[in-house]
Measured scan of single mutants.
Amino acid sequence: MATADDFKLIRDIHSTGGRRQVFGSREQKPFEDLVDLGWLKRSSVDSRATHYQITERGTSAAL
């Protein structure tokens, strides 16, 4: 179930172009929650960072 923080984060991601790069596993937790909701997808993972991209469902949630 989505929380107020989830909606705040997806709106922030949407307003800044729909993509986010995250460093460190602790910082990934809120983004992984949005992946579980179907609002974000992991577009790539490298040794230092994970890249996320907003989905259509995420765009709808952000509006």
Rank of each mutant, 00 (worst) to 15 (best):
W39S: 00
T59E: 10
D33E: 08
D36M: 13
T55S: 04
A2C: 08
S43G: 10
G58S: 01
E56M: 08
M1P: 11
D5R: 09
G24Y: 07
F23G: 10
S25D: 14
V45G: 09
P30L: 06
L9I: 04
Q28R: 11
A61P: 01
D33N: 14
A62T: 03
Q53W: 08
T59A: 08
Y52K: 01
G24W: 06
H51S: 12
L34N: 01
R48Q: 13
K8Q: 10
I10F: 02
D5A: 12
R57L: 15
R20P: 04
T59R: 12
R19C: 15
F31C: 04
D36T: 13
R26C: 15
S25Y: 09
L37T: 02
D12W: 12
P30A: 09
F7H: 05
R42N: 04
A4R: 10
A61F: 05
I13L: 05
L40F: 00
V45L: 07
D33Q: 14
A4H: 10
V45Y: 09
R11T: 07
W39V: 00
Q28N: 08
D46F: 04
T50G: 05
F23Q: 14
E56I: 08
R42T: 07
F7I: 10
T59K: 11
L9S: 02
S43A: 13
H51V: 15
L63S: 06
P30C: 07
I13Q: 00
D36G: 11
T3G: 06
V22Y: 03
F23D: 13
D5N: 10
F7Q: 04
I13E: 01
Y52H: 01
T55R: 00
L34F: 02
I54Q: 02
D6G: 05
W39Y: 03
S25V: 13
T3S: 10
F23K: 12
S43M: 14
T3R: 08
L40E: 01
L34P: 00
S47C: 11
A2E: 05
T50S: 08
T55F: 00
V45S: 11
F31M: 05
A49D: 06
G18H: 02
D6E: 07
R57S: 14
T3H: 07
I54P: 01
A62Q: 02
S44R: 13
V22W: 03
F23H: 13
D33P: 05
V35E: 03
A4K: 10
G24V: 07
D33A: 15
D33I: 15
L40I: 05
S25H: 11
T16W: 06
W39Q: 01
D6L: 09
A49T: 13
I10A: 02
R20Y: 07
L40R: 00
Q28K: 11
T59Y: 07
T55L: 03
V45T: 10
Y52Q: 01
G18Y: 02
L40M: 04
D5L: 09
L34D: 00
T59Q: 09
R48D: 14
Q21N: 08
D46Y: 03
T16K: 11
R19E: 13
H14R: 06
E56L: 09
L9A: 03
D46L: 06
T16D: 08
S43C: 14
A62Y: 03
M1Y: 13
V35L: 05
G17I: 03
V22S: 04
G38W: 02
A61S: 04
L37G: 01
I13A: 00
R48W: 12
Q21L: 15
H51R: 08
S47M: 10
L9Q: 03
Q28W: 05
R42C: 07
F7Y: 14
R42S: 06
R42D: 03
K41T: 15
G18F: 02
T50Y: 08
T50I: 14
Q53V: 14
F31K: 00
I54R: 00
Q28Y: 06
G58C: 01
R42Q: 07
G18T: 02
L63P: 01
L37A: 03
S47Y: 08
L37H: 05
D46T: 13
S43K: 10
D36Y: 11
V35T: 04
R48I: 13
V35S: 02
G18P: 02
L63Y: 05
Q28H: 07
A4I: 11
V35Q: 02
E27N: 14
M1I: 13
I10D: 00
A4E: 13
I54T: 03
R19I: 13
V35A: 04
S47E: 14
T3W: 04
T59M: 12
R42I: 15
Q28G: 06
I13P: 00
R57W: 10
K41N: 09
S47D: 14
R57V: 11
T59N: 07
S25W: 09
S15W: 09
S15Y: 10
K8W: 11
F23R: 12
L34C: 03
D6M: 12
M1Q: 13
A62D: 02
I13H: 01
S43V: 15
G17K: 05
P30R: 11
V35M: 06
S47L: 10
G17Y: 04
G58D: 01
R11Y: 11
Q28A: 09
R48C: 14
R57F: 09
A62E: 02
Q28M: 09
R11M: 11
Q53Y: 11
G17V: 03
Y52N: 01
V35H: 03
V45E: 08
V45Q: 12
K29N: 05
D36E: 13
R19V: 14
A62W: 02
I10K: 00
G58Q: 00
